[in-house]
């Protein structure tokens, strides 16, 4: 069976740290930065558990700031 591997990038300066992507992610890939903030003071989202990502786009679909890009590969 082919295995799907994904990854996302978050435009950290555009992210407002709303956490909706974190909630939407079915594989608990994402978290908000616990300490670090961006130039506007937001705890931006990042892949805290990159191995779990399946590239399903749920995070990008619910993101109000269009700051997530999603990548996906099929591994044989």
């Amino acid at each position: 069976m082919a295995k799907i591997k994904g990854a996302v990038t978050v435009n950290k300066e555009r992210c407002k740290g709303c956490n909706l992507c974190v909630v939407a992610c079915p594989t608990d890939t994402l978290s908000l930065q616990p300490l670090e903030v961006n130039d506007r003071g937001y705890h931006f989202a990042y892949m805290s558990n990159p191995d779990a990502c399946i590239g399903c786009c749920s995070c990008a679909l619910v993101c109000p700031d269009a700051c997530i890009e999603v990548y996906r590969v099929k591994l044989d």
Binding site: N11, A66, C67, E69, V70
Partner: peptide, 8 residues
């Protein structure tokens, strides 16, 4: 090449 979602 692997991008499936980008900012419109």
């Amino acid at each position: 090449a692997n991008r499936v979602y980008a900012r419109p």
